[in-house]
Write a protein that binds this DNA or RNA. Structure first.
Lengths: 161, 161
DNA sequence: CGGTCTATATATAAGTT
DNA sequence: TAACTTATATATAGACC
């Protein structure tokens, strides 16, 4: 019944919403549990498409948010995890995500390309180029002793005038 | 081996810390997944006892935090920036996100490039290529429509020297 | 400690109503 | 459409390095 699900954008709207609701609830629950178990200072905020905010925080969302802003308003000092990439592999992951979003957008035709000045072929090429780029990065990552100064013809085929 | 655990404060300090670390990681992962699966706007912030902040947010922690504060401290109405953009501009936005992540990673030097098989020059080239791609898209978008609307966001520059 | 390894608890994707 | 069910995927407690 339950199938393994790829962590990428769910294109089907109703399915996406169902997953959003379930996982949003789970996330808040997990946050509460973390706070209860460890007396942790933690907050989670989730916005629905409609703009409704779902949140939880201990001791208080605003306090945590203020603390965060105080710590990060001008000085970036993150020692642990953050939204940023931290290695070549992570760069590949980021590119992969972007690529997949593009691919999804194209496949699902969420874009009304007819009304845009951008043709579907161009976008498709872009997605392909990103995929290529990702593959290249992965390959480079894999081959430890490969050439150091090799030039990379990135997006060369896109230059069509 | 694994026993069901009551959701209440763990008194044993070392055990509490272990649980904190594991669950904190899980929470961040779940938040990421929610964002990836549903293109959700969500953020999580956790502080360790030592005062270190662990966080994740999409599109950006600060944005979400600001949105939360706006919603909960006044009756400001900020509409339509998180999702719902349609067309080429959205593609550009996706590219922008990826580009900014790369740029940030490069600037902050959170990469230990020495230990990777990927040189900073290569990554820099990739970032440049993405910027180029974005510019191309923007230009294409602007040309046919004869510059009616400026809806393509300006990027944070990468300053590659 | 900080990471790895299971066995088990929990979350959750589909199905069902 | 949401609530409930159920089979499975995933998270993670405890043990061990």
């Amino acid at each position: 019944m339950r199938r393994k699900v790829e962590i990428k954008l769910i294109n089907e709207k109703s399915k996406r919403h169902t997953t959003f609701t379930k996982r949003r609830q789970g996330l808040v629950k997990k946050t509460k549990e973390l706070c209860d178990l460890c007396d942790a200072v933690a907050a989670v905020i989730v916005f629905s498409d409609a703009g409704n905010a779902f949140f939880f925080g201990h001791p208080d969302v605003e306090e945590i948010v203020d603390q965060y802003l105080a710590d990060h308003s001008s000085t970036l000092t993150t020692e642990g995890e953050s939204s940023g990439a931290s290695g070549a592999a992570e760069v590949v992951v980021e590119l992969t995500k972007a690529e997949e979003r593009l691919g999804e957008a194209i496949r699902s035709r969420r874009f009304d390309f007819e009304d845009e000045d951008l043709g579907i072929c161009e976008v498709d090429e872009i997605a392909a180029a990103m995929k290529e780029l990702k593959t290249m990065l992965a390959a480079r990552k894999a081959s430890t002793t490969a050439a150091a100064e090799e030039q990379i013809p990135v997006f060369g085929e896109l230059n069509r005038g």
